[in-house]
């Protein structure tokens, strides 16, 4: 099958603090047309760096894409020059950032900020671009778009600003939309509005979404496939149901059971002890081994290979090796659906 986007063995290194921080360590991912892929993980797991590498936004120096390819419709974006990348960014691939308060230029009318991409990529006239900007504002649910197009960002609330950011991202009908924690800075009732909007827009436009988040609730709401990252590596990928109801990696287990359930009573949360690894000196074996309750000797020595569990699910864990002892996931995993 032809993938819209294929990341092959991508590694990103930052040369800072007199050391090499290996933020992303050889990951491979595919994104198909029209689907939503969620990348979940804690801060420092490399999920945002991955998305920035796709967009060609890794600052160099100190950052550097050490190895790997990012194939967009078969062409390697890593090899693109700055100029070539500018033609892709905003047109074929665009991005929504976490903080709507800082993502917009405070000195520019929001209409002008939406028109920028339209004039540059689609060579629309100013007049047409403005009409299209008004259309887009309407599409993302901003009341009174004819009037608001001439207002400045400070005149918008947080939720409204995030809608404007989405309008800018969708202006040129991109094939891929990267949403980096799109709702983290928003309140829950506003988050619900934005998630609803994103789902509706995806149905209308067929844009593929890469959703980067740490909130498993948002993942369950929006995604079809999930990749779990830890310590710069993808430890498990699968469909939404596979990851939530039949996860195989102990980190996924820990992540799922450390969240309290709203619809069930939990006495004590299963916390993951310890802290994430220091990526300037990453562990030789599995990055999760120091915190893993089932870690064996081999885990600290060698990185496990991926085990294919189904056509869509794979995980990198030594427990899945046939020589390993059988370990059952915690009791809270795999139940759900009813409350």
């Amino acid at each position: 099958m032809d993938h819209l986007l294929e990341i092959k063995d991508l590694s990103v290194v930052f040369h800072i603090f007199g050391a090499d921080v290996q933020a992303v360590r050889g990951i491979s991912l595919q994104l198909n047309k029209g689907e939503t892929l969620a990348i979940v993980g804690e801060s420092g797991s490399g999920k945002s760096v991955t998305s920035k590498a796709v967009m060609g936004l890794i600052p160099n120096p100190p950052g550097e894409i050490a190895t790997g390819e990012v194939l967009f419709e078969g062409k390697d974006l890593v090899k693109y020059s700055k100029k070539q990348m500018q033609k892709v960014r905003g047109k074929d691939i665009s991005m929504i950032f976490q903080d709507p308060m800082t993502a917009l230029n405070p000195t520019m009318k929001i209409g002008k900020q939406i028109m920028e991409g339209l004039i540059k990529h689609q060579s629309l006239s100013k007049h047409d671009a403005k009409n299209r900007a008004i259309e887009l504002l309407q599409l993302v649910g901003i009341p009174n778009p004819e009037k608001r197009v001439d207002e400045y960002p400070h005149q918008f609330s947080g939720g409204m600003r995030q809608r404007v950011v989405i309008a800018i991202a969708l202006a040129c009908n991109p094939k891929i939309l990267i949403a980096d924690e799109p709702t983290t800075a928003l309140d829950v009732t506003i988050q619900a509005q934005i998630l609803d909007l994103m789902r509706g827009l995806q149905e209308k436009t067929g844009t593929a979404i890469i959703l980067i988040t740490h909130d498993l609730g948002v993942v369950a709401n929006l995604a079809q496939r999930v990749a779990v990252m830890y310590g710069g590596k993808i430890v498990e990928t699968g469909t939404l149901d596979e990851i939530f109801y039949n996860p195989k990696h102990p980190y996924t287990w820990g992540l799922l059971s450390s969240m309290p359930k709203l619809h069930a009573k939990t006495d004590k949360l299963l916390a993951i002890p310890g802290t994430p690894p220091d990526l300037s000196n990453p562990p030789k074996g599995c990055p999760f081994a120091p915190r893993c309750p089932h870690a064996m000797k081999v885990c600290t020595e060698h990185m496990p290979a991926y085990t294919e569990l189904s056509a869509t699910q794979k995980a990198a864990c030594w427990l899945l090796d046939e020589r390993a002892p059988k370990v059952d996931p915690p009791a809270t995993i795999g139940v759900g659906g009813e409350s």
Binding site: V188, A192, G217, V218, V219, F244, L256, G336, S339
Partner: peptide, 14 residues
């Protein structure tokens, strides 16, 4: 509405 707005980490329920 606050309760119904929270996304739940349970795809089937969601």
């Amino acid at each position: 509405s606050l309760l119904s707005a929270i996304p739940v980490a349970d795809p089937k329920l969601e």
